[in-house]
Design a protein around this nucleic acid. Structure first.
Lengths: 220, 220
DNA sequence: GTCTATAAGGAGATAGAC
DNA sequence: GTCTATCTCCTTATAGAC
């Protein structure tokens, strides 16, 4: 193999590892399978990384930082809030359906992190990142349509992330994309109902949320 | 080890396997780890099962058939629909929080199934089972409170299952149980809004669901 | 029927030639 | 720097004593 900088070799191996995992799962991502995918010799792997564990840590950190929530960004203007949310969710779902292995890999890497003590806090950062991205979009969407959220923005984002995860997982399980789209239609309505027109003088609290059960946090 | 019938030995090994997976993940569930957990010798494993693969198939079939959705069943009577749904969701979530390893194991076994060609159709049955169980509860809850669903019951169940999956996954990631409970409060309101009083003569379609995007099913 | 001992192969990691 | 060849460990599975 031609000479490559250590940095390039690391990148090439990380990309190869992701492809192997997407195609065959984490358990199939052996060092041998990864170097074969990257077209390198086995020794090159340990020249670039001190161990397979180190590579997995790097891979997970990388995918968490570079997660493409870009799908959401296709916000249309001049539509009502529900339509904006609906479009965003359907666009996200279309990306999932077009590349199911990618989302499945994200779930697998999350499981791997949760099972690896030194990586166990990464999913927390990952979900915090999801919520931040979604919060920004929700804020923009509400502002553009003259609405304001009746709940803390982060909680609305939590609900949106929960819906996308739930719909994605169900689709990975049963492959019924039409049903996923139907659920998105209802979900968009539900989420839009968590906002009210901004020019309403007296805040109308139409939602019931009498009390939140006291449940202690666990120690992840 | 004392004599055991082959059936008892299989059951004991399946339970031991589940415990090992719950504690350390699928990748740690080697035949050696499983027989150690069950207090047997390695040879006993292959006396009960022809291979580790066969044991995993049996384990997954078993957990899918015996999944405890019993948590939902704590339906209170004499309350409104939203409260009934809220109670059910909070009861489910309390079970998850009390035994996180169990839910994590269910997700891991689902991933394993999806990655194993001959088991790849099991998650479909699993989710169909979830929806059937939830549908029954939703039907009862609506009937008891004099309400009727504005959407196909199966679609409402889909939304409930998506919410529970999404909330569970987020909690496994970040351990914020209070946030999970808050989302449940909002979700219960949203889901209850998909029903209307049964004695309303003219059906009031309050929901917007203009059109469902045509998305073809994938081939799982 | 249940065990110990071992076969056969795949894994991560490294030595040492070039 | 990059390779081939190899070390060592751990895996599933089985042979054969009892």
């Amino acid at each position: 193999m031609a000479r490559m900088s250590a940095t390039d070799r690391r990148s090439a191996l990380l990309e190869a590892a992701f492809r192997v995992i997407a195609a065959e799962g984490v358990s199939a991502a052996t060092t041998r399978a990864i170097v074969a995918e990257a077209g390198m010799s086995l020794a090159s792997f340990h020249y670039a990384f001190t161990s397979r564990d180190e590579m997995m840590r790097e891979l997970i950190r990388h995918v968490i930082e570079n997660q493409a929530v870009a799908a959401f960004s296709s916000l249309r203007y001049g539509v009502d809030l529900r339509t904006a949310i609906r479009d965003g969710l359907q666009a996200f779902f279309a990306v999932v359906v077009a590349d199911p292995a990618h989302e499945q890999t994200m779930f697998e890497l999350m499981q791997y992190s949760l099972r690896t003590p030194e990586l166990a806090q990464l999913p927390r950062e990952q979900y915090s990142g999801y919520r931040n991205a979604v919060s920004g979009l929700l804020e923009t969407a509400a502002a553009d349509t003259g609405m304001s959220w009746l709940l803390p923005l982060d909680d609305v984002a939590r609900m949106v992330v929960a819906m996308t995860d739930g719909i994605t997982l169900a689709w990975l399980a049963d492959g019924d994309a039409a049903a996923g789209s139907r659920v998105i239609e209802f979900a968009a309505t539900s989420i839009a109902a968590l906002a009210q027109p901004i020019d309403t003088p007296s805040p109308v609290i139409a939602l019931q949320h009498p009390h939140v059960t006291d449940t202690a946090e666990n120690a992840p």
